[in-house]
Amino acid sequence: MSETIKINIRDLNLHAGKNHILKNVNISVPKNKITVILGPSGCGKTTLLKTLNRLTDLNPEIRVTGSIQIDEEDILHTTSDIHDIRKRMGLLSQRPYPLPMSIFNNVAFGLKISGRRRKKILHKRVEHYLRQASLWDEVQHRLREPAISLSIGQQQRLCLARGLAVDPDIILADEPTSALDPVSSAAIEEKFIELKNNYTIVVVTHILRQARRIADHVVFMYMGEVVEQGPAAEILHNPQMEKTRQYLNGAFY
């Protein structure tokens, strides 16, 4: 096989209190591809993304077992610094949550907290990543304004720039267009297709058409379990499992 596996999830189980949320999840995410995780609401897609970024650590009630290997390193059982692990993944959430500071500082945040403070370098990096997120032209004259003064679509691209600025090699996106208008959504989708040459992208969505537009690899989840996964063309056009077929035909959401 020509493709390399970037993220390898093996026997992942997640309990929150008494609820068994992720059940024996095994997923292989190919490098430099867009992997779309499809499934109805409440099937554990978002939880899965948070587990990848170890944000589940925040909730003491959550227990995680199994392994998640990224570049051969098991991030669930590792001696590496958790903050370095998180920096390897840029996170884009359902709605944009700009940090309570200026546009410039939102992008510079990740650089500043890891100790890079030289003004000139910061400015160059911020411009670079704002350009990457196709936002530079719109905001170059208002970098000092608060980030919340931007439109929602711009905010989401700002969040993308902010995530790229910590130089990750993976982008995790949790229904990144669900709060956006069609034009902004299309901009984000195009961006993903452009970015996949340099990044491995995991997108959670329940929009089938979006999956058809951008997916290289599809994982279908239902009730915390992986039902089926494989190349997009196979899963979307010729699913093997009954559940997947029903979902693709719109039998449930």
Binding site: L55, H83, R86, L99, I113, V166
Partner: peptide, 15 residues
């Protein structure tokens, strides 16, 4: 304060 804001900051490598 929405939890997502905390998550956003943590995901950027902040302690």
């Amino acid at each position: 304060i929405p939890e997502e804001l905390t998550e956003a900051s943590l995901s950027l490598g902040a302690t």
